[in-house]
Every structure is written in C-alpha cells, then in structure tokens.
Design a protein around this nucleic acid. Structure first.
Length: 648
RNA sequence: GCUGUAGUAGCUCAGUGGUAGAGCGCGUCAUUGGUAAUGACGAGGUCGGGAGUUCAAUCCUCCCCUACAGCACCA
C-alpha cells in the first residue's frame, strides 16, 4: 500500500498508509485524542473523521473545543436528527434540504398538514430521544442510479431532483443516523450522542419556496438554534431577548417617535419626537451634501405615465407603482399618472433643461426625494421597509472616465457620515452583471472593475454578489445590520447609462459633439425611514446627544424650585439645547424613571440647594451617579454637545 | 404575493356561547418628596371590519383588513 505524508499544525509530518481516516490518525497520536476528536481540517477543508485520505495533506484534528467546527457539526447533525424525528412522527412527510445557518440550522419539509408551535415541542422531545440512543453516524458513497432509485422507491421526489442537479463527477454521500439516512455532503459527528442534548432549541416554523423559487412548492421550514453547550444556548437566547428590547418599533412607541396604522400600511406618522430626529438628520445631510459639491433640487410627486413609459418604469416596474387616475367628472381631462417610485427620471428632466457642456460634469444633483412604491404586503417591516419614504437621493451625471473617481469620492463621503452617526460595522457589497442585462461584456468588465477599484482606493474591502446587479449596470450596496442581525441595504451606488439614453440626456463634449453622460444613482442613508430605524436599533434608543429628540429635562424636586427650573430651561434653549421643564407634582424618583425610560440623555434635577447656589444636579442616561455643577458650565458644555459633528 | 401565527382600554395582556377584567398610563384630590414607580378615588372598550350559524356571538364558521416570523420581491 502506498504511503502518504500528513503535516500537522505544528509543522511535523508523519507517514501513513494511503486511505487512512482522520479517526485512525487521531488514534495513532493518543487514545484521549481519538476519543475527543470530532472532525479534521484536511488541506483547508472540513473533513469527516471517517473519510479516507489518499494524498499528502495538511491535517488538523478538531475537538468540541473548536467552536467553528464543533458548531457546524452539531448544527448539521441536528438538521438530520430533526428530519429523522419529523419522519418518525409523521412518516408521510417528505424531506428536502437542511443547511447550517448562522447560530443554527433549518430543514424544509413537504407535508400536507401544517406544523404547529406545539409540534415543535413534540419534535424536540423526539430529537432528544434520538440523541440519547447514541446511534452511529455512517457515510456511504452511492452510485447515482442507486440513489435515485432508492429515493424514487421511498417517494422522495425532492431528493431525486437534488441528485439530478449534482454534477456527475461528484461522489454522492449518504449519511446514516442510525436507520435513518439522508443525502449529504457532510461532514458529521460519529454518533448522535455527541450532540449536546441541551444545547439546541427549535425556534419557529415558516413557509419557504422549494429551491427559493416562488413558482414552486411552498414547503414548511423549521428553524433551530444550536451551540456546543447549554450555557452558550442560554447566552444566545438572552441576547435575542435583549435585542428585542432594541426593536425600533418598540422604542418608537416608548420614545413617542412615530406610529403606523391600518389606513396607511407601510407609511409613517411621525410624532414631534421622531420628526425631530428626522429633520436634524436632514439638516445635517443637507449641509454635508452642499459641502460635497451637490446642488439640491426638488421634483414632482405625481407624474404623467408618458414619462414612466419613456423611462421604462411603466413596463417593468408598474406593479410596484401607485397609479393615480384622475376622475373625469372632477377633472377637465382624464389623465393617468403615477406617484414617483424613484427620482431618477425627474432628475434627468432637470439635467435636460438647457445645454450642458463637458465643463458641467461631473454634475452632482441631490434631492430629498419622497417616493412611493407599492411594496408587497409581506415585505413591509416597521419603518425599515415601507411604501412611502424619502431618499437622500442623488444622481451624478458624469463621463465614463469620471466614474471611478466619483465612486471613490462618494464612498469617502458616505464613510465619514456613517462614522459621525456612530456606525463602525458596515459592509460593502458589489453586485455584478445579472443574466438579463443590456450592454456588452466589455463594458460590464470595465464598470465592475471601476467600482471595485474605487472601493479599494477608498480603503474598503467588499463582498461580491454574483449576478445581483441591475440590468443596466453594476452596483455597490452599503449594508448595515439591525438589532437581531438582519442586513439592510442603506447606501447604494449604481452605474447607469440606460436612463440617460432613454431620456435623451446629453452634453456637448470638448470636440463640439453631443455625448451621452453616465448617471450614478447614489444614496447615502438610503431612506430616512430605514436609516432612522437602524439608527434607533444601533443605539438602543440612546441616540447621540445632537440627534436626541429630547435632550434635557429639567426636573424640580420641590415646587419652590419651579421658577428656577423655567429659568434653566430658557437659558438652555437660548443656547441651542432642546430642554423642557418637568415641574409636575411628582417625586424626583418618578421623574427620573419616566425620563430614563423615555431615553432622555440628560436630566437636570433642581431643589432648594441648586436654587440657592445657581447649580444643577446632572444625571446622564444610564449612569447612576450624579454631579452638581454650575449652571453656566453645564450650559456651555451641553451647547457644544448639541452641535452636530460637522459644525463643531 | 406565499406559508404560518395573531388582533380585547393609549400600552402590555387575562378572559367567557348569556353584551368584559388586571397592571401601567390618563384625570381629580391629598402628599413638597434628593435620583428608576407616593397614596386614594375616577373616567375609559359596541372585544380589527363584514357576513353567517344561534333564542343569544368578543368567543363557533366563512370572507376581508392589518400586524408579526420566514420565504419570494427589493431600479
């Protein structure tokens, strides 16, 4: 038998017979390692202990202490164990796929009856039984026709389809968890008993389309979370509970920022507090954009269908548009209009007025543009995904040569703003050419490269989203994360030559001829609605002082201090701080609690002593300690703090 | 849009085939208190909308709306 050389992480190499398994390698090192080993990394890939190694390789053995590998195995085995449990309880259930995801796994089933929340408890119980059986996990490599026949006989059409989709040269691995078996790439643990029975929890049931295709069957998906132990699971569940407290919908109510109601689904009723944040943010963005060389415009809400026909929206975006038909009885003439779902066609109209020269480019045009889109009902989510929203939109009209530089400038512009708003964790995604597209591959090559280069030049890494670009050009997405880890695209930059062409935008070049400009659709915050939602969750309601809707409450301890309270409030307001008086006949404890719950960053308490000494007692949100300070000092400090970062 | 769950007072929720209840909040009164809930009393809901079954529906059935979770969508 041929021999192979395996190199360990410490650099030492040892000779083994070809075909040796990682389990045997562990055995060769020590009994205890053999007992503890769960998997191996072979040549950088996560391997099952039972797979034969036939070539020279690097190898690292893993135990339950290696979180990354252990979690993957535990979650993956649980997916199988859950599927087995479900089929043991309801044998008529068909299985499909069950991958590992962040914090856990899911498995999609096809079954006539719906799973109920109570079923989850039953399934969990069955899973624990399976774990306690400590059934061996075995792999077998099957021939395609055998595997297909097997699944056809068992009435598992989804598995048959899966196998048919696997390239012919890939080995088909069958994993057995006891008597139950599933098609699976692996790797897995050695027996079901290795899965910590108290480290997982079934979380929810949801619908999901087979193969992610809305034209195909709707399956039932069961989600679970799993960790290598009880404590880690507990920590995770705890984190979820804490995250729920940061939900912008909950905080929006508690801080009295906004509400939504049935009569206007997907639209926001901003309350004074919320609108404060909104306008403060908008003022900030307006200054920022002016400094960034943008001209601000404003364009109509209701626009005749003719423009949408020209822009192409009427044909390809109509189902997402609010159509406004003017009734003949009440109007001089009947027209069909649409609420604008986007600002770009209108911006081209502004660009098209008068002759433009190459000297006018790049032309950066911005608008706080209100848009209305008839989003699918199931897509709506608080103020993060709505039907009526305002983008901090902008379009940069430029030449092809200017694209890369303009993109870089924009990324720098955006990153400074995100930093000033308190975001450190955000990502860039580069979406590349989709299947259905216009333009030559040469152009796509160039544009994709330009966007990538611009990111690098600005000092940022990016992930590629293959095929996710718009049909007319590649795009960058700037992604932020909400309280429970869901990603939201906020900023964006998209390259477009299609819109200028359709709407006849042109400029006179150096050569005296007409040329067509490129258009960069870009937004920094994305929409005020979504961004404020993210902002609330990111800061758990404790917004930076300058953005806080209510900055200071001056609370009296005794009513004899009321006059002084009003004096303090007036002094603060005069220096640009948002202060309000609380002279209600309530105890200071009560007032402190209420305003703390309302996330007011600073409470100034005032009693006999403060009146006497012309001081205030300062209490910062989240701090237990208070400090007595001179009114004038506090006033000066808060005035600085309430100044937006770009004006300091 | 699809699958599932839910909708009772401003909020969080309990409850029942015989026209509803708690806590908080709100109002009034008393209390002037030193940093996360002072006490007493009071007001407040045709139980998401519509139809049906029934002597009788908030409760059972059907349709619709909205929200939530996930999927699909996201120029």
């Amino acid at each position: 038998m041929a021999s192979i050389s395996l190199t360990f992480p410490d650099g030492n190499a040892r000779e083994y017979d070809a075909g040796i398994t990682a389990a045997a390698v562990a055995e060769s090192i020590s009994k205890s390692l053999a007992k503890k080993a769960i998997s191996a990394t072979v040549n950088g890939e996560h391997w099952d202990l039972q797979w034969p190694i036939n070539e020279n390789a690097t190898i690292a053995l893993h135990t339950m202490q290696d979180d990354v590998q252990a979690n993957e195995l535990v979650r993956h085995d649980l997916a199988h164990i859950m599927a087995r449990a479900v089929q043991e309880i309801w044998p008529d259930t068909k299985v499909t796929i069950g991958p590992v995801i962040k914090n856990g796994w899911y498995y999609d089933f096809d079954r006539k009856e719906s799973f109920t929340p109570e079923d989850l408890i039953t399934i969990e119980k069955k899973m624990k039984e399976i774990i306690n059986k400590r059934d061996a996990v075995r792999t077998e490599v099957w021939e395609r026709d055998v595997a297909i026949k097997y699944y056809e006989d068992r009435g598992e059409p989804y598995k048959v389809e899966l196998i048919e989709g696997i390239p012919g040269d890939e080995p088909l691995r069958m994993y057995w968890h006891g008597e139950w078996q599933d098609l699976c790439r692996g790797p897995h643990l050695q027996h079901t008993g290795q899965v910590p029975g108290d480290g997982f929890k079934l979380m929810s049931i949801a619908g999901a389309y087979w193969r992610g295709d809305s034209d195909r069957e709707m399956l039932q998906r069961i989600y679970g979370v799993a960790f290598t132990g009880k404590e880690k699971l507990k920590a995770h569940l705890n984190m979820l509970e804490e995250a729920a407290k940061r939900d912008h919908r909950k905080l929006g109510r508690e801080m009295d920022l906004f509400h939504m109601q049935e009569e206007a689904p997907g639209q926001v009723f901003w309350h004074p507090n919320g609108w404060r944040i909104y306008t403060e943010l908008q003022d900030y963005m307006r200054r920022r954009q002016r400094a960034g060389g943008y001209v601000e415009v404003n364009t109509p809400q209701v626009v005749n269908r003719q423009l949408w026909e020209k822009s192409g929206h009427w044909e390809s975006y109509q189902e997402n548009m609010f159509i406004v038909e003017v009734d003949e009885d009440h109007a001089r003439e009947k027209t069909v209009n649409a609420l604008k779902p986007m600002n770009c066609p209108c911006h081209v109209q502004v660009f098209n007025q008068g002759m433009k020269s190459y000297r006018d480019l790049p032309l950066r045009m911005a608008e706080f543009g209100s848009c209305n889109r008839y989003e699918p009902s199931g897509a709506l989510h608080g103020i993060m995904r709505v039907r009526g929203f305002t983008q901090d939109d902008g379009h940069i009209f430029c030449t092809e040569e200017q694209i890369e530089t303009e993109t870089k400038i924009f990324i720098e512009f955006l990153s400074e703003i995100y930093a000033e708003l308190g975001f450190t964790n955000w990502a860039i995604k580069l979406s590349t050419r989709p299947e259905k597209r216009i333009g030559s591959d040469a152009i796509w090559d160039q544009l994709e490269t330009s966007l990538g280069n611009a990111c690098k030049a600005a000092g940022y890494e990016y992930d590629i989203q293959e095929g996710e670009g718009a049909f007319y050009g590649p795009k960058l997405e700037f992604v932020l994360t909400d309280a429970i880890g869901r990603d939201w695209q906020c900023g964006t930059l998209q390259v477009d030559s299609n819109m200028p062409e359709r709407l006849d935008a042109s400029y006179v070049g150096q050569d005296g001829n007409k040329h067509q400009p490129f258009m960069l659709h870009r937004a920094t915050l994305g929409s005020f609605e979504r961004f404020i939602g993210i902002l609330i969750e990111e800061h758990a309601g404790k917004l930076p002082f300058w953005l806080a809707p209510r900055q200071v409450v001056v609370a009296s301890i005794i009513s004899d201090a009321d006059d002084y309270v009003h004096e303090v409030v007036a002094a603060l307001n005069a220096s640009g701080v948002r202060a309000e008086a609380d002279v209600r006949n309530e105890k200071i404890n009560y007032k402190v609690r209420e305003h703390s719950v309302g996330k007011v960053p600073v409470i100034l308490a005032v009693g006999a002593r403060e009146v006497e000494e012309r001081t205030v007692t300062v209490r910062r949100l989240g701090e237990k300690q208070t400090s007595v300070q001179a009114l004038d000092d506090v006033k000066a400090a808060l005035a600085v703090e309430s100044t937006p970062p770009d004006l300091r």
